[in-house]
């Protein structure tokens, strides 16, 4: 299986992601530049964390009109697994591939700490190997991670199991319904604020993020959630 990691100007977790996928998990990885118009045959895509285009206008607003995003949309609409982490989640929301938006943390502070994250839906490309209600310990580090959605659309999201992850404790950012991550209807596109790529290498202490990437490997082989 080959992973594609998108590199926007201002991405800063792109190489962390490449390192854990390639060096810790032994997968093939291709870095995809934001101006690329070809996904080079990758089987799954990660939009990494960072500050694409300086987060000018709104986080993710400018990144989502990058040339590569047209291909990412096509890939996502064809059922390919796409994971947006932190800034990548913001980009997927701005691109309309995921519902909702992320605004400034309600406490107006940048938060950086390990958080218990509950898996709320196991029928997604990145949670298929988890058990329902499983709590993963994964770091968060963001200033703009408060998930918001209007009431009627929130009910619709909850109704269809669109919440993939919730903060098991109080949300560190004021997110509605403690939402830490969401998925599209098909479950192949997932975005979350916590950073699973920082919880893979045992040398760094946490390993609970690994299961997200393992799930996607199964999904890419079987085409659907197990």
């Amino acid at each position: 299986m080959t992973w594609g990691v998108i590199v926007f100007p201002g991405s800063n977790d792109d190489r962390d992601t490449r390192r854990v996928l390639a060096d810790v998990m032994g997968a093939k990885v291709r870095m995809l530049w934001h101006k690329d118009t070809d996904l080079k045959g990758v089987d799954a895509i990660v939009l990494p964390g960072g500050f694409s285009y300086g987060d000018y206008l709104r986080a993710g607003a400018i990144a989502r009109i990058s040339p590569v995003m047209e291909e990412v949309s096509r890939f996502a609409n064809a059922g390919g697994p796409v994971l947006g982490i932190c800034n990548g989640f913001q980009v997927l929301c701005e691109a309309g591939l995921l519902p909702g938006a992320l605004i400034r943390n309600s406490g107006l502070r940048f938060v950086c700490r390990d958080e218990p994250i509950e898996v709320a839906n196991t029928a997604t490309a990145f949670t298929a190997s988890c058990s329902g209600g499983e709590v993963l310990r994964i770091p968060v580090k963001h200033g703009c991670g408060c998930y918001v959605l209007e009431k009627n659309r929130l009910e619709e999201l909850e109704g269809r199991g669109g919440v993939a992850f919730r903060y098991a404790d109080t949300a560190p950012n004021g997110s509605v319904n403690n939402i830490a991550g969401v998925c599209n209807e098909r479950g192949n596109v997932v975005g979350l604020m916590p950073h699973p790529e920082h919880a893979v290498d045992p040398a760094l202490g946490l390993v609970d993020g690994r299961v997200l990437f393992e799930s996607a490997a199964d999904w890419a082989v079987n085409g659907v959630a197990a």
Binding site: I103, R104, L108, C146, V148, E150, K151, G174
Partner: peptide
């Protein structure tokens, strides 16, 4: 401007 129904933490701080 932020929608009425949407939390505006910066506005609150101001």
């Amino acid at each position: 401007t932020p929608k009425k129904a949407i939390l505006d933490p910066q506005g609150k701080a101001v």
